[in-house]
Amino acid sequence: MPEIYGGFDSKLRLYIYRHFLRKGRAPSVAEMAKGLGSRRRQAKAALQRLSQSHAFVLQENGELWRAAPFSAVPTAFPVQVGERSWYSNCIWDALGIPAMLHKDARIQASCGCCNFEMGLRVKDGQLLDHRGIIHFAVPARHWYKDIVFT
């Protein structure tokens, strides 16, 4: 197992998720450093290590872009849980938010071809809507060569 899943990196990983959950948005690198009582340089280095797992993706400026299943930037996959909402990265991640939180959710999805509205609901651990299909354009072993397209 990589060493990044222990110590400071593990604390940072959980801090990021908890920040998304509490505030509905990604923490900045400055907020991460302050929240964990560390130097900004230490937080940046840990983020780089976390991004090796592909669950975390950074923007060119070093700030967080994606902490799967959450997106740090607006997307076409908003997910509402109670009074809170988050953006996810794709339909898999949109379903991943209620799966991760073990909560009921509404997903404002639409057809990737024609934008036809296809809202989905998760309730009591079940997906209530089953119309539609999910398409993966990229074979599994190539997913991380271009994660944005994938």
Binding site: A68, G96, L127, G132, I133, I134
Partner: peptide, 24 residues
């Protein structure tokens, strides 16, 4: 054309992938 899943499979995949994501 790539790979396709039913929505039911997609939900199960999400549970497999993300069900334990908040575990320390």
């Amino acid at each position: 054309r790539g790979g396709t899943l039913t929505l039911h499979q997609g939900w199960r995949l999400a549970q497999e992938w993300y069900g334990d994501r908040l575990s320390p």
